[in-house]
């Protein structure tokens, strides 16, 4: 609903907004955040608040795929990048589960550690693409739709299907809604947490690969800011940041919403910094609404 209002107001008030090419630009800009946000949704539904290691994992995905490509070819490089990203996510999940660790502290630790490792290896330098095939795929359009958008839609579709159509998907919601009850019922709540973190690592790594294919270059900073825009998209979509309620399609709406605000700010000629401010306000408003809603339904 809010998205509709935003779209109508933007279309009426902002020149050059209501064009097909601008719509594609919004979706393409949002697709990278969107891929991350699918994994982030799982993490948040499971009740783990957030994965702050996303920027480093995006960089790992992008840098690994670009750096390995000359040696082992496109597909194996992408596979290795996704595997490494998933393992990092799994490591987060294992530490959180085994040590009953605080997810935000743990993923903050991983983020610092990992970005340190990346800088130690790359010295902050850019890694450039070497494969024309890879870059072509990244900037290709299928039936007029850029590949990053397709990648986002596929990831979101798989995520939503898993969450709503499979038993294990329902378990995520149960574990996030009431961990003790879910544990008492015999649900593997800790394992579900590990899976959620691993999937978030996978999607962040995949977002890194897609970004790398799209821009044909990457450095350690390629993923910065995506953790916050992904959380904003999840929150504004209506998935409870407290866990236990939400869906991927809501996140898709949230992604479009956040990307639209971004786009409008750009069309209005406002600087990049206004974007950061908008993200922050969106998250605060979403948290307050969420909290008010929970109080009124209790």
């Amino acid at each position: 609903m809010a998205l509709l209002i935003l779209l109508v107001v933007a279309a009426l008030a902002v020149d050059r907004f209501a064009t097909l090419s601008n719509a594609m630009a919004i979706l393409r800009a949002g697709s990278f955040t969107g891929i991350v946000a699918v994994g982030m949704t799982l993490v948040i539904i499971r009740g783990y608040y957030a994965d702050l290691s996303v920027p480093a994992v995006i960089a790992v995905g992008a840098l690994t795929s670009l750096a390995m490509m000359p040696a082992i070819g496109v597909l194996p490089a992408v596979a290795v990048a996704l595997l490494v990203s998933t393992l990092i996510g799994l490591l987060n999940g294992v530490i959180i589960a085994v040590a009953s660790g605080n997810p935000i502290i743990v993923t903050l630790g991983t983020q610092i550690l990992l970005s340190g490792v990346i800088v130690a290896i790359t010295q902050g330098a850019f890694v450039y693409g070497t494969s024309e095939t890879f870059a072509d795929i990244g900037s290709a359009k299928v039936l007029g739709v850029p590949t990053p958008i397709l990648a986002f839609l596929v990831v979101a579709g798989i995520g939503q299907a898993w969450l709503s159509l499979t038993t294990s998907g329902r378990f995520f919601i149960a574990a996030g809604a009431n961990q003790r009850a879910a544990t008492a019922m015999g649900l593997p709540t800790r394992r579900l947490g590990m899976v959620a973190m691993a999937v978030c690592g996978l999607t962040a790594g995949f977002a890194g690969v897609v970004l790398a294919a799209f821009t044909d270059q990457a450095n350690v900073a390629i993923g910065s800011g995506y953790e916050f825009s992904a959380i904003a998209a999840v929150a504004v979509g209506g998935t409870s940041l407290f866990g236990g309620a939400g869906s991927i399609w809501r996140t898709v709406v949230g992604v479009v919403f956040v990307a639209t605000i971004d786009n409008v700010l750009v069309l209005l000629g406002l600087p990049f910094e206004a974007r950061l401010l908008a993200t922050g306000i969106v998250i605060i408003v979403a948290v307050v609404f969420d909290a008010l809603l929970r109080r009124s339904t209790r």
Binding site: A232, F242, L276, I281
Partner: peptide
Amino acid sequence: RLGVPSLLATLGTLIAARGVAFFYSGG
């Protein structure tokens, strides 16, 4: 007042304060 876990509330104000700082300083 709202019963938001501090982790979440302060994550929100972290992002907001960061946004204001960037906005106010022009980056």
